[in-house]
């Protein structure tokens, strides 16, 4: 039971989860398969000793995003899971092509960096210890502007969403009151 076995197991789980998530016609089943994928990915991060990324993966994706999707499904009439969602095969070829292209674009630089016998170390040095502290310092020091802008953007989005939701509600209420 070494890292390689663990890697293959987790990889198999993730890929299987992702495949089921795409192919399953029952929406709720699909969401849970997606969650399996998320958790598998978190396991892979853990295997790379990137604890914090793993935990964020679980917290944000498996926890928050998964529940968000479930909520969205609950608001549709697919709740029952009986009337299977009809996946149309139209455009699946182009979809596959585009995702393959994106995949390769991401993969290629990584492949180039794989250590070989002639070139044993990766090009860029990774932060030696990826503890939470280190991550926090990085986030607060060099990337502070980015973080702040993101925070502002998200807050604006949140306020906008609340306003949009409330605006509709308020006018409705007025109508009802009349």
């Amino acid at each position: 039971m070494n890292e390689v076995t663990a890697f293959w197991m987790l990889a198999a789980i993730s890929v299987l989860g992702a495949l089921i998530a795409v192919r399953k016609r029952n929406l709720v089943h699909g969401v849970f398969a997606l969650l399996v994928f998320f958790v598998g990915l978190a396991g892979l991060f853990l295997l790379l000793l990137a604890e914090f990324i793993a935990v964020v993966q679980i917290l944000v994706y498996a926890g928050a995003v998964g529940i968000l999707i479930l909520f969205a499904i609950m608001l549709t009439d697919r709740v029952t899971g009986r009337d299977a969602f009809r996946v149309t095969s139209r455009g699946s070829f182009w979809g596959a092509l585009i995702s393959l292209a994106v995949f390769l674009v991401i993969l290629l630089p990584t492949i180039q960096d794989i250590p070989t016998i002639e070139n044993p170390t990766p090009k860029e040095t990774i932060v030696e210890t990826s503890t939470v502290k280190q991550l926090g310092i990085h986030l607060i020091k060099p990337y502070i502007i980015t973080i702040e802008i993101l925070a502002l953007l998200l807050t604006a989005a949140l306020v906008g969403a609340v306003t949009a939701a409330q605006g509709g509600r308020a006018s409705e209420n007025e109508e009802n009151n009349k």
Binding site: V28, F32, E51, V55, I58, L59, A62, G63, I67, V79
Partner: peptide, 27 residues
Amino acid sequence: LDGAVIFFFAITGLNTLAVFMAGWASR
């Protein structure tokens, strides 16, 4: 683990999904 506390919250959060699963699956 260095992030034990935050791991704790992440994993207890999964409990919610089990509860939802039970509620949904019972029909």
